[in-house]
């Protein structure tokens, strides 16, 4: 028996090695670099160890404002996803057969085809000569085109489109978990459809909504591509600030410090999410 246990553990070794090398150590390197000093004229930072990168983050109001903006965008997106995601999830759980397959494919297609394809389409849709502006002018809502790209609105639209599938899938799981006989009992006791929905289905699926909210919120905090491309570099969030420091200004200690702050923030969000009852089973899929 003991021998087979050892043999089983041996199968874990290659994957564990890859994780140590390319997942665990990089985070420690990040942690280490965040305490190094960047001397002028040199890209590679060195000792002495210092906390000045962290102090710089809170020094003036710029970076705290970036954090505030990221939190606000994430909160807004997660809220919109709840409102848009719930009816879709409810509808799909009731659908059957081929129709259900079609609906599911539409929901997951944005996840599978990758963030860059989605951003490409959204970018085209939202340009000043794009279909959204054309439609709004045709409908008489706008007199002249509005610039969505490079604005908070554009970024929130993009984040919502990208992360709505997670919300739908999470809420669907919760609604599907409601036993049929509970709903039948409500019918037998004389509840009509509306009462049944608001008194049974909605309260019993609220943990799913909370889980979806945490999930989308966390994804938005981590997001980089959507805010950068749809924000056209004008909407600064934590992700774009890290990239800018690391790859454009080559200030690696500062980039590392911001990344550590982001990790701390994300861990707090998911930890808080885990304290909610029934939340924490699902985690996100493809990154955006």
């Amino acid at each position: 028996m003991k021998k087979s246990v050892n043999k089983a553990n041996a199968l874990l070794i290659p994957l564990t090695l890859v994780f140590v090398l390319l997942f665990i150590i990089p985070f420690f390197v990040l942690f280490y670099y965040s305490f190094l000093t960047r001397s002028s004229g040199q890209v590679v930072p060195s000792t002495p160890y210092t906390v000045s990168s962290y102090l710089r983050f809170f020094e003036d109001s710029y970076y705290p404002r970036v954090v505030g903006r990221t939190l606000w965008l994430s909160l807004l997106t997660a809220g919109i996803c709840v409102v848009l995601g719930y009816p879709v999830a409810y509808y799909i759980t009731k659908a059957r057969g081929y129709w259900k397959t079609v609906l599911m494919v539409v929901v997951i297609l944005p996840l599978v085809s990758g963030v860059i394809t989605q951003t490409l389409g959204l970018y085209g849709m939202l340009t000043s000569y794009g279909p959204v502006n054309n439609f709004l002018m045709w409908a008489g809502i706008l007199k002249e085109p509005v610039e969505f790209l490079g604005t908070t609105t554009g970024v929130v639209i993009g984040l919502t489109q990208g992360f709505l599938p997670y919300m739908i899938l999470t809420v669907m799981n919760a609604i599907q978990a409601i036993p049929d006989n509970v709903l039948e009992a409500a019918d037998n006791l004389g509840a009509n459809g509306v009462q049944r929905f608001f008194l049974i289905t909605l309260p019993l699926s609220k943990t799913g909504v909370a889980a979806g909210f945490v999930l989308v919120f966390g994804c938005c905090l981590n997001s980089y591509t959507t805010p950068l491309l749809l924000g056209r570099g004008k909407i600064s969030v934590i992700g774009t600030a890290i990239y800018q420091q690391a790859m454009e200004l080559y200030n690696w200690p500062f980039a590392s410090a911001i990344a550590m702050i982001l990790i701390a923030l994300v861990l707090v969000v998911f930890a808080l999410g885990n304290t909610l009852p029934g939340v924490g089973g699902r985690k996100k899929a493809v990154s955006g």
Binding site: P26, L30, N222, I242, A246, S256, L262, V266
Partner: peptide
């Protein structure tokens, strides 16, 4: 863990390492 830790942070860490 790769699902919920920020990819951008892992990216910077990987690059430096």
């Amino acid at each position: 863990a790769p699902l919920f830790l920020p990819g951008i942070a892992l990216g910077v860490g990987l690059m430096l390492w």
